[in-house]
Design a protein around this nucleic acid. Structure first.
Length: 750
DNA sequence: TATAGGTGTCATGGT
DNA sequence: TCACCATGACACCTA
């Protein structure tokens, strides 16, 4: 299991490196924000939906060997090989390229161990974990580092440095400090290494010593070579970066809106249960009394958190274009997202933003009279088309002072309705969490609540990229040694009644040494071990991912076996080649074994992949028995169907991924639209404030014929259809406004 | 031991 | 009619 784990880890590292080279950006934010596209691309991305297969195909297709001509990976092969070569050329190691990868992994783990347990003091032992892999001629990690560093100094281009930086980020993601692979550190070390190296006999010890010193240096002096910052502070550098972003957000926010105005803004986004449980004041009232909000300190902290969120929203709105004309989906500010996630108790205290204390300060005591009525989704046109201005423009104390229920309407406040909609119907905390940044756990929790009914949530932890099952499929199949077993014991029987079955049994008996217990289809691991010398850490892993790969490429290299080979010679050869044959048997597919048992004189790859005409010619060229012909046709049928099934499953996954992407996009659009809605509400509120002040100003200047001011409790201004403003007694406003608006008309100008 | 995911295979239908 | 492909369903294996 240790080996398997090791291989798995290395495989993941290499896979991540390859992904980064393929252009899939690996970002800490995306790790933390599981819903964002980069991570999904890493895990299930379009180019890596079958990352497991892709990864192993990389190994199997290093030389372009074995790629099925119809494989969907064929177009990626050249790119993959080129990129892989770039990885190899990065440090221009004399060791095989994958040695570099192994080194990276071991450096990573060792550094983690060394830095994590400085006092334990067993660096040699931990370091020597790598020794068996290096081999006698291999360069020690420091040597690798030396070469990498030196070459990095001399030949690395900016592009290469960027690639290295990507690798660093991934290492950081994997838990290793960036300083482990710090370029400047490597430069320093390479400079040190450029000094004459000690003799070889001391080399190992000195290397270990210097290596240990290097590690200890990093541990004892947690200071980054570039910035001088302590390393533990550097690791969460993203946080500092996002903190800066937040400050910028706040600065922008303060420049955009007055502080007091923002403090009242949370109301629209209150959670439904909060809205229902607490006395959420009418927005109009809250607006009217917003400047009266006492600067109490505890609410300000909470408000500050809210303002942080709002600042982010503002920033995003600004980034997406000015209000009202944002197009497309608003890009996600991932930096802010991460930082917001680090806000202490932000989301937990979220409801407290709207706690009664704040509400009581911002809401007038007569909140009940103007509580938004439900169910009426008035629009903006209705708002400004209202002829009765009192419900909109009269200050609350004026409105509420009237005892006339008919003329002093407890009209449904359209703004309040809008806000109520924002509060109650569509606003999703998850959306805000995903885009505005709550903690990952909180976001996940919220997401689970929403995903529970979506049915589209993918468990990415069980992504196809997981090679776990494959790595053991071979090794776990090495126990059975029964020689009398038939194919029916090998799992899926399939065409166990096919013509070849009985023959195969006999043939297997003739061949001898066949171990049907080794039925796991691990053929890919032993196609050509020489291909894997450059990937030592992969060569020993028995993977069984044969998507888009020929079934019997292992035997494609075999010369077409002469039909005339006698059983005796076969036995002789087999007795001599027993270990190799066992390996082949062990990792050959059933059809391959059947074909060999039945002396099929050509490879299964040909059988499966040849065009039908050539296939028929092949059959005609070789005079096969009926059993052989049936077997060949079955092999062809099964092989094609197998590839078809693989493609089908891949398409299924791609479809699911695309659907998930669509859901993500829709969620983002939804969040963007909600933001726009809130912006509209904000704008309307501002206009409402202005109109309110204008109303008061006009009303206080009104005088009757005797020069007395109109009592606001008895009169109100009415807005007629022709644009004129009327002053009407409150008792008749409602009854009169619709039929005789010109009555008692007194045109007033502002 | 139960379970979920991966994989191969078969059956069936469409092209 | 044949070859090929796509896909649902099933069985098996493994973690």
């Amino acid at each position: 299991m240790l080996y398997l784990k090791k291989y798995f880890t290395e495989g993941l590292i290499q896979f991540t490196i390859l992904l980064s080279l393929l252009g899939v950006r690996v970002d800490v934010d995306t790790y933390l924000s599981n819903q964002l596209p980069p991570l999904r691309e890493i895990i299930l991305g379009p180019s890596s939906a079958y990352t497991q297969t892709q990864f192993h195909n990389l190994r199997n297709n290093l030389d372009g060997y074995g790629i099925h001509p119809k494989s969907v990976d064929l177009d990626q092969f050249f790119t993959t090989r080129r990129l892989l070569n770039r990885v190899r050329q990065l440090d221009r190691l004399s060791v095989p390229s994958t040695e570099l990868n192994t080194w990276l992994v071991h450096r990573d783990s060792e550094t983690a161990v060394s830095t994590g347990s400085q006092s334990s003091g067993a660096p040699e032992s931990t370091y020597n974990l790598n020794a068996p892999d290096t081999g006698p001629g291999a360069v020690a990690p420091e040597g690798n580092q030396e070469q990498g560093g030196r070459d990095g100094n001399d030949d690395l281009t900016k592009e290469d440095i960027d690639l290295i930086d990507i690798l660093w980020r991934q290492d950081i993601d994997l838990g290793a400090g960036r300083e482990v692979f710090n370029y400047s550190n490597r430069q320093k070390e390479s400079e040190e290494e450029e000094k004459p190296r000690p003799p070889e006999n001391k080399d190992g010890k000195e290397e270990q010593e210097s290596w240990r010193n290097g590690v200890n240096l990093q541990g004892a002096q947690p200071v980054d070579g570039e910035t001088g910052e302590s390393i533990p502070e550097q690791l969460p550098s993203l946080g500092s970066q996002t903190s800066l972003s937040l400050q910028e957000c706040l600065r922008l926010l303060e420049a955009t809106f007055p502080f007091g105005e923002e403090s009242e803004f949370p109301a629209p986004v209150v959670a439904p249960e909060t809205a229902s449980n607490e006395e959420v004041p009418s927005t109009s009232q809250g607006l009217a009394l917003a400047p009266q909000l006492p600067p109490e300190e505890p609410p300000l902290d909470l408000e500050q958190q809210w303002q942080d969120i709002m600042a982010i929203m503002e920033l995003q709105s600004n980034a997406a274009g000015s209000f009202g004309r944002s197009s497309g989906s608003t890009p996600v500010n991932q930096d802010v997202s991460l930082h917001q996630a680090s806000l202490p108790g932000c989301s937990q205290d979220f409801p407290q933003v709207f706690n009664p204390q704040v509400d009581s300060t911002s809401a007038p005591p007569r909140t009940t009279t103007l509580r938004p009525s439900s169910g009426n989704s008035s629009n903006v046109n209705a708002t400004f088309g209202a002829t009765n201005l009192t419900g909109i423009f009269l200050p609350p104390h004026v409105n509420s002072s009237s005892t006339n229920v008919t003329s002093t309407p407890i009209l449904p406040d359209p703004f309040s309705n809008l806000l109520e909609e924002s509060m109650l119907d569509e606003i999703s905390l998850l959306d805000l969490a995903m885009e505005e940044g709550f903690s990952q756990a909180q976001a996940s929790q919220l997401e689970d609540e929403l995903d529970s009914d979506s049915g589209l949530s993918l468990d990415s932890s069980r992504s196809p990229a997981s090679p776990s099952s494959s790595e053991t499929s071979c090794s776990s199949a090495a126990s059975s040694s029964s020689t009398s077993a038939t194919f029916s014991e090998e799992g899926a029987v399939g065409y166990s009644t096919d013509s070849e079955a009985a023959t195969v049994e006999a043939e297997e008996g003739a061949v001898g040494g066949y171990q049907p217990g080794y039925s796991k289809l691990c053929r890919m691991s032993y196609q050509d071990p020489s291909q894997f010398h450059g990937l030592p850490q992969l060569g020993g892993v028995g993977h069984n991912h044969t998507y888009n790969l020929p079934l019997s490429s292992a035997f494609a290299e075999q010369p077409e076996l002469p039909v005339s080979v006698g059983k005796k010679s076969v036995r002789d050869k087999h007795s001599k080649l027993q270990p190799a044959q066992d390996l082949l048997d062990k990792h050959a597919s059933r059809d391959e074994r059947r074909a060999r048992s039945m002396k099929i004189p050509f490879a299964n790859e040909k059988i499966i992949n040849l065009p039908v005409e050539e296939f028929n010619e092949l059959l005609a060229k070789h005079h096969l028995s009926e059993g052989q012909l049936a077997l060949v046709r079955d092999i062809r049928r099964r092989g094609k169907n197998k590839m078809a099934a693989q493609n089908c499953r891949k398409r299924k996954l791609d479809t699911i991924i695309n659907l998930e992407q669509g859901v993500q996009d829709l969620r983002r659009d939804k969040t963007r639209l909600l933001k726009e809605k809130m912006e509209f509400i904000r704008s309307i509120r501002q206009m409402k404030q202005k109109m309110q002040s204008l109303y008061q100003e006009v009303f206080t200047q009104l005088r009757d014929e005797e020069g007395r001011p109109y009592p606001p409790s008895e009169y109100s201004l009415q807005y007629s259809a022709d644009g004129s403003v009327l002053i009407m007694p409150r008792g008749v406003t409602t009854a009169e406004q619709s039929r005789k608006p010109e009555k008692k008309q007194k045109d007033k100008k502002k």
